[in-house]
Amino acid sequence: MATADVVPDATPMPRHQHLIVTVYGLYARNQDGTFAVADLIQLLGDLGVESAGVRSSVSRLKKRGVLVSLKRDGLAAYKLSPDLEDIFTAGDERIFSPRRAKKGDAWLLASFSVPESQRHLRHKLRSILTRAGCGQVSPGLWIAPGNLAHEVEQQFDRAGLMDYVDLFKATHLTETHIREKVGQWWDLPSLEALYQEFVERHQPILQRWEQLEANEPESTDLLRQAFADYVPMVTQWRRLPYMDPGLPEEYLPANWHGLAAQELFAKMHALLGPKARRYAMSIVGAN
């Protein structure tokens, strides 16, 4: 049962570094954030990554401060940077428990002003707002559903930029134009294309597993295949909830693929997640 049989060739697989970050985020925190190098190479090998590619990608992640090297039981190992733990914890909620606002909920407004002498900070501010899923009303005014307020505030506080930002909860008073405005504030066609790509890649994989589930006995090979299907799926998915602010359904285009993609992710997470975890723990817990 080869993953390539059901994955369209036109859609590229996630980059090696992204796969490694996903594996650490899913499984390393049960191991004090640490994987022996040999275990990491085996797990990434099950995802089709050669050992040289693993070592090269780990080296890049180390330079970026994502991973730190150490010895565990006398063996070479890499640990997730402790500075990133709160980021991964916040990511768990955004990725696995996405929230969708309701019509009539308050909006978050973020206004920032940066002195000309510190204009280099403007790009950093815009990057944080974009990564949080905010839309741009004007160069210095951004908007998002109000339920993102705490997360946005945390990101600015973590970056030491709260002195430049004012956050407000607000009500939109010209409700009749809101759907048109939402299409101006967010690049929904680009996001729709990413969701459609996710569905096209992973829907056949889910269908294959649903056919197998009823009569396939659990084996090491089955768990390994679940791991090989699940980790790339999570890797492709995990950036989408950050790009999608969780707008009310009433403000979204008709036949929005984001809703189908979210349902697909939930089904694959429930079906493959436990199997993939059992396989990963059988490798990293063996030493």
Results as ranks from 00 to 15, higher is better:
D86M: 12
T235D: 08
K275T: 06
A170F: 09
D92A: 14
T235G: 02
G74T: 11
S111R: 15
R126V: 15
I205N: 02
E263P: 03
Y24E: 01
N147G: 01
A106M: 14
E200T: 12
L61Y: 11
S138G: 02
S127W: 10
G45P: 01
A4L: 15
R29D: 03
V137H: 04
E263D: 13
R100L: 13
A159P: 07
K169T: 07
M1W: 15
H123C: 07
D9E: 09
R179W: 03
R126G: 06
E216K: 15
A110F: 10
V58L: 07
S57H: 05
E200K: 05
Y78S: 04
G160H: 07
S282E: 04
T3S: 14
Q155L: 12
Q184P: 00
G104P: 08
F227C: 07
Y242C: 10
T22W: 07
L61S: 05
Q42V: 08
V152A: 06
G285F: 12
P14W: 10
A260V: 13
A77P: 01
N147C: 09
M268V: 14
E93P: 01
A254E: 11
E50L: 08
R55C: 00
G133R: 00
W185F: 11
A38Y: 00
T3W: 15
R224N: 11
K275H: 12
Y164A: 05
Y78D: 06
Y251Q: 08
S127Y: 10
H177C: 03
G48C: 09
G146Q: 05
G133H: 01
V7T: 04
M281K: 10
R158A: 12
V152C: 03
I87E: 11
R131E: 13
P241K: 01
D163R: 15
Q31T: 01
C134S: 15
D9L: 14
H202W: 15
G104E: 14
P14E: 07
V58N: 00
N287H: 11
G273P: 00
D163T: 12
R15Y: 03
Y279A: 00
A2C: 10
H177G: 06
G91N: 10
L141K: 06
L80M: 13
K79W: 11
K62A: 09
D73I: 08
V114F: 10
S282M: 07
R224I: 13
A132T: 05
L223C: 09
D92E: 15
R29P: 00
Y230M: 06
A4P: 02
E210C: 02
V152D: 01
A77W: 03
E197T: 14
K267G: 02
Q155S: 09
A101N: 08
I95S: 00
T171V: 11
A38R: 01
L194H: 06
P82K: 07
A280T: 09
E85R: 10
I95N: 01
A280E: 01
Y279L: 04
L223N: 00
A280F: 09
Q184G: 11
L222H: 04
N30M: 02
L108K: 03
V231W: 09
F227I: 12
D86N: 14
K169M: 12
R94G: 03
L108C: 11
D5P: 02
E85F: 15
D46I: 05
E216D: 09
R278F: 06
Q203A: 11
G246I: 04
A159E: 08
Q31E: 08
P12S: 12
M243N: 03
V68N: 03
S117Q: 14
D92N: 14
G160E: 04
V182D: 01
E200A: 12
G33W: 08
P189E: 03
D163I: 09
